[in-house]
Simulated assay, not measured.
Amino acid sequence: MRVLAALSGGVDSAVAAARAVDAGHDVVGVHMALSRNRDEYRSGSRGCCSIEDSNDARRAADKLGIPYYVWDLSDEFHDLVVTDFLSEYAAGRTPNPCVRCNEHIKFDTLLERAASLGFEAVATGHYARIAIRDDGVRELHRAADAAKDQSYVLAVMGPEKLARAMFPLGEIASKSEVRVEAAARGLGVSNKPDSYDICFVADGDTKGFLERALGEKPGEIVDESGEVVGAHTGAYSYTVGQRKGLRLPRPGADGAPRYVTGIDTERNVVTVGPETLLSVRDLVGHEVVWLAPDLPATESKPCHAQVRAHGEPVPGRVVRAGDRVTVELDEPMRGVAAGQSLVIYDGTRVLGQATIAKRAL
């Protein structure tokens, strides 16, 4: 099989490519250049898009003896990921740029280009598993290593893209095994630190990045009764559940901490309140991507719901109706924000994904 291996410059993608070679596939490595000005992107352990990463990817390809190319996807990344990130925050929602990157870049643009060049699959270093049933249905499952599982950010890819994806690291028990294997193969990235946070926020200051891009928009912070209790420089830079950085001049009447409970970017108002107001029992999601064609769309089914990449899954029941899913939780979930990715699981299997449309108390 002709396989395109996405080489980020990290240890995971290098070992994934090596395993694809070992499996007998005809492998070609490609590094995605995602920044228009790569000096602005993070380097070392804090990035995945720098010139340093490109050089590390090239060295890994050379060691594996596979062809290597760099594809400039910076325009697509800016238009589909960075612009979406800014517009979502500007609308008072909380996006996950890694979800959008996987959706639009790694498993849309990359797959489209790969298919046009005759590649049958794309292999990446993501931690997730694909199971193929006797009836041919491909299922996306959590990785064997729960601590590194990335099925949450992959759920948005959909069944068509899943059919052309390979995750060679899905069955590995721990990241330490990957590093040991990389060292044994002579890959120089065996001890390279993991990347964290948002790659296009160079200094890690998301609030500052938003203010530079969207401009300061001073407004009021109010409590649940509507009383003004503070001020802000832009409602877009807050997220539901936030406690730090509110800079309120005085505590609540009961002396308890206050959290962001609502964001209204049209009125430019941030609402704060006690922690009790953060809990929800029902979730509503739209823009549904369903990965379980074998399950009836409208049948209520037990599930677990997750709204953060490394969040705790909460049990409940899900009902899907067209482009909308509703989850009734067995227990409250805290700090749910519009714009978050809602992923539905049945055990380790991913049933589907949707974008949180609203909070229902």
Rank of each mutant, 00 (worst) to 15 (best):
Glu216Arg: 15
Ile221Val: 14
Glu88Ser: 14
Gln306Val: 05
Leu169Gln: 10
Leu73Gln: 07
Ala23Asp: 12
Arg349Cys: 08
Asn96Gln: 04
Ala14Thr: 01
Glu88Asn: 09
Cys199Val: 12
Leu64Ala: 13
Val343Ser: 03
Thr94Trp: 11
Ala123Glu: 03
Leu361Pro: 14
Val229Trp: 05
Val307Leu: 12
Ala165Ser: 15
Val288Trp: 06
Ser35Trp: 12
Glu120Ser: 10
Leu154Val: 01
Asp203Met: 06
Asn55Asp: 14
Val314Gln: 06
Val178His: 08
Arg129Tyr: 09
Val280Gly: 03
Val70Gly: 04
Arg133Gln: 08
Leu291Gln: 02
Asp75Gly: 09
Ala338Gly: 10
Glu216Phe: 02
Lys301Ile: 13
Arg258Glu: 11
Tyr69Asp: 11
Val272Tyr: 07
Glu299Pro: 03
Ser176Cys: 07
Ser35Leu: 14
Val343Ile: 09
Glu120Pro: 11
Val319Trp: 15
Gly170Ser: 05
Asp254Leu: 05
Val180Pro: 00
Thr355Lys: 10
Leu73Trp: 07
Gly219Thr: 11
Cys49Gln: 10
Arg317Asn: 12
Ala309Phe: 12
His141Val: 07
Leu210Thr: 02
Val336Tyr: 01
Thr326Cys: 08
Val289Tyr: 00
Phe167Cys: 09
Ile172Asn: 03
Asp134Arg: 06
Ala163Pro: 00
Ala256Cys: 07
His104Glu: 14
Ala61Trp: 00
Asp22Ser: 12
Val27Phe: 12
Ser174Arg: 13
Asp26Gly: 05
Val280Asp: 07
Phe85Pro: 00
Leu86Trp: 06
Ile263Leu: 02
Val153Ala: 15
Ala235Gly: 04
Leu73Ser: 06
Thr276Cys: 09
Leu34Thr: 01
Gly273Cys: 03
Ser43Val: 11
Asp194Met: 09
Asp330Arg: 01
Gly347Asn: 04
Gly170Ile: 03
Ala182Ser: 10
Asp108Arg: 03
Phe167Val: 08
Ala292His: 03
Val21Gly: 06
Leu295Pro: 02
Gly347Phe: 00
Asp56Trp: 00
Ala6Gln: 14
Ala121Met: 05
Ser45Thr: 05
Val180Tyr: 00
Val122Met: 02
Pro97Trp: 12
Ser50Asp: 07
Arg59Leu: 13
Tyr69Gly: 08
Phe200Ala: 06
Lys175Pro: 04
Glu224Arg: 11
Met166His: 09
Asp330Trp: 01
Arg185Cys: 02
Val180Phe: 07
Ile132Gln: 07
Ala360Arg: 10
His141Glu: 08
Glu88Leu: 09
Val319Tyr: 11
Gly125Asn: 09
Thr298His: 04
Gln242Leu: 10
Ala321Asn: 15
Ala60Met: 00
Thr94Ile: 03
Asp108Phe: 00
Asp84Tyr: 12
